[in-house]
Write a protein that binds this DNA or RNA. Structure first.
Lengths: 211, 211
DNA sequence: TGATAATTTGACCGATTGGTAAACAATACA
DNA sequence: TGTATTGTTTACCAATCGGTCAAATTATCA
């Protein structure tokens, strides 16, 4: 009797749920640090505390782990942007968005780096997801444009505004090594995120204010 | 008589100069696209138009190519920041810095991605260079602080100001795949850099203006 | 309990990869 | 021209890696 691959059966056993989460957690550690090609199944298996064949019982290929991880991460990654509310106060909404994105860099740096790795390589495995992303950004760009038209915030290109928010906030996760090197050991504690928050808040409010 | 490795002799033959540049150029192509682990010596050799052992005659290891490339790139990478002039007009100086950094993202995206790859992985091979970087940033942060003290620009954290300039400008090279996906095919020409320049200029001038 | 399905492991395999050895070809230069 | 040096290639090796297989072990449940 051949053993059915875990992924084939409809997810039912408790042990499958658990082990798959353990594997994805370990894979996030490894992939975010070494990239896809730089990571080995053995490394992931070791971090996950199981043998390589055992890991491959739950995910048939290295690629499958990577895909599952990206799917899981990308979904939550865009939540802050989804929450941008056309009905809210424009400046407050953007300030909240910046703050939430910065918090994600602080609390989920591995996820940020996993994503950065993927995009750096030309985003080969997330083309469809990028289409969804475009749709969401298009929608929110319209919201921002409406705010501009209504004279609520300064005139600017909404797409590049969003890019700048992504860039400035994710920088603290993706370029952490550089940020720490520049700030030095004393300023490299969690306090750097509060300094960053202060700076970004002031900057975006100033930049968006009508003048 | 054993053949002396090219790197050992003092660089003299014309052919060594040429081939080493060809190799570094090819390696930049490959490393910036696939990362260090994701790149193979065979790939670099093929792009360079020579055999693998021939390439290894000029650089003894894959690591050596990578190091040579990083050294060469990092040196020019900081030029724009070096040019930030304490004697110039503060707002104009920062505007020039932003513009130059953005031009580097447009004209040297491979260099940007090579660097991003390295920092993403924790910057293992450029620790000393990061120390130089810190010294330079410290110096320029003092310049900015002086401008603030003199009431020439708005009060803000100079380190995070510099981080934000790095982040927003390099974003267009490092996250090119995402930027293109969001802007769509029509807006993905070189024109996106002019839109970005307009946005960033307005934003930094607005953010730094006294109010 | 016993049978059946699910889980785990050690041994292994073929492909790829970084790097070497040694012979061969081209060049510089006395 | 001859010879020593530099440059190039073919063949190869050892290590690593993604993945398989069959057997062993454990959980499930009638």
């Amino acid at each position: 009797m051949p053993v059915p691959r875990a992924a084939k059966t409809q997810r039912r056993t408790r042990i499958q749920e658990e082990k798959e989460q353990i594997i994805l957690e370990a894979a996030l550690d490894v992939f975010s640090l070494h990239g896809f090609k730089g990571s080995t199944i053995d490394q992931i298996a070791e971090v996950a505390g199981m043998s390589k064949p055992n890991l491959l019982y739950y995910f048939r290929t290295k690629e499958a782990i990577h895909r599952a991880l990206l799917d899981q991460v990308l979904d939550t990654w865009l939540d802050p942007l989804r929450e941008l509310d056309a009905e809210g106060d424009p400046v407050a909404e953007i300030r909240s968005y910046v703050r939430r994105k910065l918090e994600m860099s602080r609390d989920y740096p591995r996820e940020s780096r996993l994503f950065a790795n993927e995009v750096l390589r030309g985003a080969p495995s997330i083309q469809e997801e990028l289409a969804d992303l475009k749709a969401l950004v298009d929608e929110k760009a319209q919201v921002i444009r409406a705010w501009i038209k209504a004279g609520k915030i300064a005139r600017c290109d909404p797409y590049h505004l969003i890019f700048s928010i992504w860039a400035t906030t994710q920088h603290y996760a993706d370029f952490d090594a550089q940020v720490r090197a520049v700030l030095g050991p004393d300023k490299s504690g969690e306090g750097r995120f509060e300094d960053a928050a202060r700076f970004l808040e002031q900057f975006y409010i100033g930049g968006l204010q009508l003048r």
